[in-house]
Simulated assay, not measured.
Amino acid sequence: EVLRHPLMAIPGGFFYLAIKPRLILIMEVYEFIQHIFTDFKKGSEFNLAQTISAHQSKHWQSATEFWDLLLNNICVVGSWIFLSHLWGVGLFWSIYSITLSCSATIFIWLFFVQHIFEGAYAHKTADWNYILGAVQGSSYLELPAILRWFTADIGYHNIHHLCERIPNYHLAACHRENSHLLSDVKTLRMRDLADCSQFLLWSADSNRLVSISSFRQSTEAILKT
């Protein structure tokens, strides 16, 4: 309950955007070095090229993902060093931390409410239904035009989950043209965002998310009977 509290998005967002990408790269480099030493200890059959090609990372699926992460880290950490030298460490990290934490909080909340709302479909992996997961497990977040532009139409999350290959600039048109098929999609508005934070528990019986208060009430009712 504490970890899913809305205020946890502030430190969580900073960790997700600033720390996690660097931590993943460090962890993978460490595991890769371990992999090389393990193969090296096997003796004369050690072949560096084969060892590298045989290594399977837990943190990315392809070499392209690795190079994207590596270049991202080089650019980000390089900019940290450059701007810290240009502005001073204290000034740069004060501005950077506040700006990144605020933007990350908004970013996380916009994603959070796309799946966390009253009655959202939530099923265990076995027998999980792709269509129900997209239509009843994702919401349509109705945003003002300016926010739709800034968020690349993230509000049409149900369409994105039905087909992730649809580019963001076609999501709105696709939603309009298929609105008659999307009557079961949950529509959320800005005023609903705060209420979504209470639906954190999964009911295995109904395959739906339920609020903490309703869970406590049902538990108390069972105990009384």
Rank of each mutant, 00 (worst) to 15 (best):
M8W: 15
G133S: 15
K124E: 11
H35M: 05
A54F: 01
F82L: 14
D127H: 12
S57E: 02
D192I: 09
L209P: 10
A9F: 06
Q217K: 15
S139Q: 09
Q56W: 03
P6Y: 07
Q50D: 09
F215S: 08
K186S: 07
I212K: 06
Y96P: 00
Q114K: 00
S62P: 03
A152M: 08
E177I: 00
R4C: 07
C163Y: 07
L223F: 11
A221N: 14
H59C: 13
F215P: 00
L86C: 04
A54K: 13
S44V: 10
G12H: 05
L70V: 07
N72I: 10
T187I: 13
A145F: 13
D68T: 11
A18Q: 09
L23K: 07
Y30E: 05
G13D: 04
G78L: 09
E28V: 05
R165N: 06
I212E: 05
A104K: 02
H59R: 09
A134R: 06
L143T: 12
S214H: 13
I131N: 04
S94T: 14
R148T: 05
A63I: 11
N47K: 14
M8H: 04
I24L: 15
S211Y: 09
D68A: 05
Y121R: 08
T105N: 05
T151Q: 03
R189M: 06
M190T: 14
F150S: 15
I19P: 07
Y140M: 06
L141S: 01
W67M: 14
A104T: 07
E31F: 11
Q114F: 01
F82M: 11
H160Q: 04
N47T: 10
E28Y: 12
S62Y: 12
E65N: 10
F66H: 03
I159K: 00
L223I: 15
G12C: 08
N207F: 02
L200Y: 01
I116A: 08
R4V: 01
T38H: 10
H161Q: 14
C174M: 00
Q114G: 15
R148W: 04
R165W: 08
Y96Q: 14
L200A: 13
S103R: 02
T187L: 07
